[in-house]
């Protein structure tokens, strides 16, 4: 039995730390570029990861970003022990947001992050429990549409 080779990366995201916001997605993006994954795939991974990273930073008080890069696909998991999402169906709707004013002033809170994650990934899964936290898994195939 041969195990599929993969590159694993893991980052802690601190709640409310806007100075370091986006570092996990930027590092994962750089690694994918280095490996030679097509640019349009790299961009989709970066966008999906950034949206999830910012949600954890803004709505959950911090969490963890895990990436596993295989030859033919990448799996990103973002999990937190925040308040959880009471109604996932509602949260997935474009325009739904509970972001407070000071967050909206920074340009967040359009209620488009979760829909963006679903659109830019090939597989999207969200699990959330009130009082326990939220876990999002996105999968991206490394087959470019630009080819």
């Amino acid at each position: 039995m041969t195990e599929a080779k993969s590159v694993k990366m893991s980052y802690d995201v601190a709640g409310g730390d806007f100075d370091r916001a986006g570092e996990a997605s930027a590092n994962i993006k750089r690694m994918l570029q280095k490996i030679g994954i097509p640019a349009d795939i790299v961009r989709r991974v970066a966008i999906g990861t950034y949206e999830a990273e910012m949600n954890v930073l803004i709505h959950a008080g911090g969490g963890t970003v895990n990436a596993e890069i295989f030859t033919d696909h990448t799996v990103i998991n973002i999990s937190d022990h925040g308040p959880g999402i009471p109604d996932i169906k509602l949260a997935m709707q474009e325009g739904w947001s509970t972001a407070p004013d000071y967050i909206r002033q920074m340009g967040f809170g359009a209620g488009m992050g979760l829909p963006n994650m679903m659109k830019c990934s090939d597989k999207f899964d969200i699990q959330s429990k009130i009082g326990e936290g939220t876990s999002i898994t996105m999968e991206f195939n490394h087959i470019s549409e630009d080819l």
Binding site: F18, A21, G107, G109, A110, M112
Partner: peptide
Amino acid sequence: DLLSNVMGQAEPGMVWVTMQGHQNVAA
């Protein structure tokens, strides 16, 4: 001026016109 809107719609090589000046814009 909505970051998620830009991420969902803007494409590589575009110029982005905004009134936002904080660091998430660079990201």
